[in-house]
Write a protein that binds this DNA or RNA. Structure first.
Lengths: 130, 130
DNA sequence: AAACAAACTATAACAAAGTATAGTACTATA
DNA sequence: TATAGTACTATACTTTGTTATAGTTTGTTT
């Protein structure tokens, strides 16, 4: 499988000659690239689940609150295409499929960590010091 | 204006008694909280634009590639509700409206920074060492 | 008075994302 | 033969997100 390309539409914008205004376009684009790969409700939950150890389909299905099998399957395939997740089939009987994070997938850790910290603080702020 | 509540649906899950599996649910939820606030294609671009200085509607509209006025207006309102962005009306003539990040909005900086770094590396990986 | 700018807002249409439900293929066990 | 486990996939549908287009208000310039 081949890595999904970065959206064409994100390619537009800013030839080097153009004014970069305050330089913010150079920041926006990579952030949008990241969001594109992580888009949707479930990719980060799946990745997080796998940072806690390799998992089988059924385990993840139980472990990630509210995810449906369809979404799990769909998102795992996308993550695989982007080389963040690896799928290993053991030809035991019955067949067992194990998912794991690739080394590349693990490079998302610092970003996830920051989102986690912010999200935690945000929840506390909103729920009132809970 | 009042801060938008965290989605009810995100409240479900895990009573303290329940098995936390490998503890990953405790990470997933805050990350989903963060994603909820930052959801959509435009909130981070808008926030990034404002980290480079206070801006007026028209400036942001030009500076953020491809955003429509409708989305800019809608997303600014949401960010304002979440206290990430402040809207200041100067009663000059003609009236001028300035948007800025709140201190709280600025706390997103580390997360954005990590997403930026990852997105930049990802683009290089995919575009081929560009 | 006519045209224009800033900062939006309304309406409708369309696209993407997500959910619900059911079903498949394989094998094992009762 | 019937039931069950594992790992999905198909279909249809609903919801949410985004875009396109046009219009509003207040005031300015010509």
């Amino acid at each position: 499988m081949e890595a999904k390309k970065i959206k064409e539409a994100d390619n537009q914008s800013v030839k080097p000659q153009e004014k970069t205004h305050s330089g913010c376009v150079g920041i926006i684009q990579p952030v949008q690239d990241a969001l594109y790969v992580l888009s949707g409700k479930w990719k980060l939950p799946i990745i997080i689940s796998l940072t806690f150890g390799n998992k089988r389909f059924g385990e993840m299905s139980k472990e990630i609150p509210k995810i449906t099998d369809r979404m799990l399957s769909k998102e795992l395939r996308e993550l695989e295409m982007n080389q963040l997740v690896k799928r290993t089939v053991y030809d035991s009987i019955p067949v067992v499929v194990e998912y794991s994070l690739t080394d590349y997938g693990k490079t998302l850790n610092p970003a996830i960590e920051e989102l986690y910290k912010w999200g935690k603080a945000h929840r506390q702020r909103i729920m009132g010091k809970g």
